[in-house]
Design a protein around this nucleic acid. Sequence first.
DNA 1: CTGTATCCTTAGGGATACTG
DNA 2: CAGTATCCCTAAGGATACAG
Lengths: 140, 140
Amino acid sequence: MAHDSDLCRSNCPINFVLETFGDKWTLLVIRDLLFHGKRHYSEFLASDEGISTNILANRLQRLTRDGVVEKEVDPDNRSKAIYRLTEKGKDLLPVMLEITAWSGKYDSKTNAPGAFLEALNEDRRPLIAKILSDLEGDEG
Amino acid sequence: MAHDSDLCRSNCPINFVLETFGDKWTLLVIRDLLFHGKRHYSEFLASDEGISTNILANRLQRLTRDGVVEKEVDPDNRSKAIYRLTEKGKDLLPVMLEITAWSGKYDSKTNAPGAFLEALNEDRRPLIAKILSDLEGDEG
DNA sequence: CTGTATCCTTAGGGATACTG
DNA sequence: CAGTATCCCTAAGGATACAG
């Protein structure tokens, strides 16, 4: 089984993601990694929604355990970790883009810029390629 | 604001969907409506994950309030309701398909049929059109 | 400053009784 | 059977103290 431990209420693919991301915080960490280039604990802490320290630590652990995030020591600062998305994590990008598109359509106050939404409607592929290459860009 | 009431921790589009669907049950109801053609209370109750009666009632209320689901009296049985997705609800289909694709890739035991995943990889649009037309098919 | 552990409150949710 | 209400418990999570 992927995602060791945990409940597993059924073999449904929708249920599978709910058991990893079905809470109010996990997806925000993914968002920060994917769209905002965040890598350090303090950066995640600083996000608008105000995640608390214990919840953040717990989510980073779970995501690491589930193979969505990987953690390594920051070469510039040995007492600091760098968190990065694995391939499994990066593969969440299409999901995240569709979520953004839906919110963009139905939430009047959403921050997603119009140009971004238009690019989405055209064709997802080039946008996906760009975001992923940006992500590679600041690796290491 | 869309989605009246509720917290609203930020104006982020990812956060927006979390405040509606960020729990372990809501998305399963959407799944049942979208992929399994379910319409009645007892049908949702019968799903594999075993939602309990009070939670189901609560989620149907919230989804109705948020304009994702609409409720009407079943003409065949006046003491029974029919639940349907609104346009806003149907627009979740691309999100649900991407979630299914991701799980199909990473969950070894997921039920998503291979043919379905292949169709997904080809091009989402025809598949989306088909599912939506099936959904229209059994309206009224 | 980077995280972790503890304490405590609240909300999510399971079981089940109940009403039309 | 469709749906609601109650009871109670567990787990999510906020505040914050603590450790390296």
